[in-house]
Design a protein around this nucleic acid. Structure first.
Lengths: 343, 343
DNA sequence: CTGAAAGCGCTAACAC
DNA sequence: GTGTTAGCGCTTTCAG
């Protein structure tokens, strides 16, 4: 009947077909009140029949609700982030939202720039995954952007950061790290060394703090424990392992503060013919999917990345409250084959 | 001066500040012709100063160009897809595009529904990653959606699918699979078995075809080679390995048609105490990042996933041509520690 | 080369 | 309950 060929149906087409005004059609489709159930049902039927889907640009421009979320990750190719993203994307789809993903890669300035871009894109929610900074000044710009975003009605959620004034999903990095350290101490290890990420990341200091307190609780001096501050990657792990092997040959256990670094540590030990766990025990952190398939299977502190993504998105869906929510996550020690009593 | 507080600058603000009309400001910022260089420069300066970024919703609604791409993956938590996504997201950002990611998960009907949704969202380009179907009828609906999308000016690119009328990034699955099989045959293996994914996926039949032709070229009968059709996942690989071990105990080499399945195969062999590669050799396909860290490090056919993502996005940026482009990718055999001559 | 004005499709006041 | 209408911010004819 009506309408232009070769073009998607518009709200006005649905309205005409259903014999109502645009306003009524709009209300009916948004399940807003003020429409009789009879009429609403008819509108929905017509919409379904025509395959009508609202134009989100028109909707957003007119001041309606948005249903696009922005997800900021360091690098989507990294398993830690891709598992988080999986949770976010899956849950978002269930709620009819779509997810825009972008990379941070460089630093907090790049992060701020990405948030600015997402704000310009008028996303309804922004989820920031990945470690924050020990020094709040370093993320001041990020904080400003996020504040501005929230002031204009946007929902912001961070994963694993404390300093920002917004809802947060917070794994207990310290406790999880302590559990790994305790596991090693219980096995009898006394000469631990840590392969840590960059010291300005709060994830690193939180995890390191957990290790140190577990060591101290055992009556050892944490300051005697060597720590290699290296990039938070497989390559970083390789560098850290090399450093420890050379400078502290008596080490019996190496704690890597994430699984990517642990992977690097294992690869160096394998190359050098150091038996794991016979000569040196190794632990990771996160429990990315492949941790179970490494050689040997990695003992690690498990964080539920996918669930964290789900939780973050669900927080984003909830209305804002004045006092930011903090949603803790579970964690657990997963003992596999990379740890054993010292020789 | 002008304007509403607490609100982002609009084009009209820029125009006013620069002392020109909206039309001129629009042209200047889009680098369209018809504006004197002097005026254009002034407009750009003002825009930069004000931190102006166009509202993409208004822009799209008015019929301007979009710069949002949709990326369809089976599951972003899967390394194969997250590495592709990494390439897409990185390149897109360089070109000022953002990327919406969504999951397919179920089947080609879900796939078609997602494409429909992205069309409704008015994305400028759609990239579909992941295997297509052997039977074109199974993806008829996807094809229809993609055709309709392209007819309305959208750019569609697929990765690893032949049957669709759009630009494609095509790894040579057959040749790569043949190279893996040849490697095993050269080592002296004669009793190969394949752990394959679902037989209705063209990726599976292409790769299997490569293996079979390599086997045939060696004078063996490919029909004698056992093939386990299992899900394209780690768990599928486990099931396939169990099946082969039980039904064909004489097997000396297992070819898994992707690394996820190879991971499962290795885990079953380890559990059962079958030495790899001493008793049985194992190969994978794709070379996901962790392949090098498995136990033992996996011999596999390497596909440049990240580059494939880059290539796909770059094709999406190019203007459409009547005859779809086919962009081949490199591939290579990566020999590691999971293969050796038979006992 | 520049400006005025007509929409793009939708929501949200505001009328009835 | 339902309809009318004024924008949302931008691009794009069409005039000058």
């Amino acid at each position: 009947m009506a309408g232009r060929p070769h073009s998607r149906p518009r709200l006005i087409d649905v309205a005409a077909q259903a014999g109502v005004s645009m306003a009524t059609a709009s209300r009916a489709l948004a399940s807003r009140e003020g429409v009789s159930e009879r009429v609403a049902a008819r509108v929905r039927d017509v919409a379904a029949e025509l395959g009508y889907v609202a134009n989100p640009h028109a909707r957003t421009l007119a001041g309606g609700p948005t249903s696009v979320a922005g997800l900021l990750v360091y690098e989507i190719g990294d398993p830690y982030f891709s598992e988080i993203a999986s949770g976010v994307v899956g849950t978002a789809a269930e709620h009819g939202w779509s997810v825009q993903i972008s990379h941070t890669e460089r630093d907090s300035r790049a992060e701020a720039a990405q948030i600015r871009l997402m704000r310009a894109h008028r996303v309804g929610a922004i989820i920031v995954a990945g470690s924050g900074y020990v020094d709040p000044a370093m993320e001041a710009e990020v904080a400003r952007e996020l504040d501005a975003f929230q002031e204009t009605g946007g929902r912001a959620v961070v994963i694993g950061r404390h300093h920002l004034r917004c809802d947060a999903v917070l794994p207990d990095n310290s406790a999880a790290a302590a559990s790994v350290a305790e596991h090693l101490l219980e096995l009898g290890h006394r000469r631990l060394a840590v392969v840590a990420g960059p010291r300005h990341l709060n994830t690193v200091t939180d995890r390191l703090g957990g290790v140190r307190s577990a060591v101290a609780a055992r009556g050892l001096d944490p300051d005697d424990m060597p720590v290699a501050y290296v990039p938070f990657t497989r390559e970083g792990g390789r560098a850290g392992a090399a450093q420890i092997l050379e400078q502290h040959p008596g080490t019996t256990a190496i704690l890597a503060l994430n699984d990517a670094m642990a992977t690097g540590v294992l690869s160096v030990l394998r190359e050098r013919g150091v038996a794991v766990p016979a000569e040196v025990s190794v632990t990771g952190f996160d429990d990315i999917q492949v941790a179970q398939d490494l050689a040997p299977a990695l003992t690690t502190a498990r964080l539920p990345m996918s669930e964290m993504g789900v939780a973050a998105f669900e927080l984003a869906l909830r209305p804002p409250v004045s006092r930011p929510r903090r949603k803790p996550t579970s964690h657990g020690l997963v003992v596999r084959d990379s740890t054993a009593p010292p020789a």
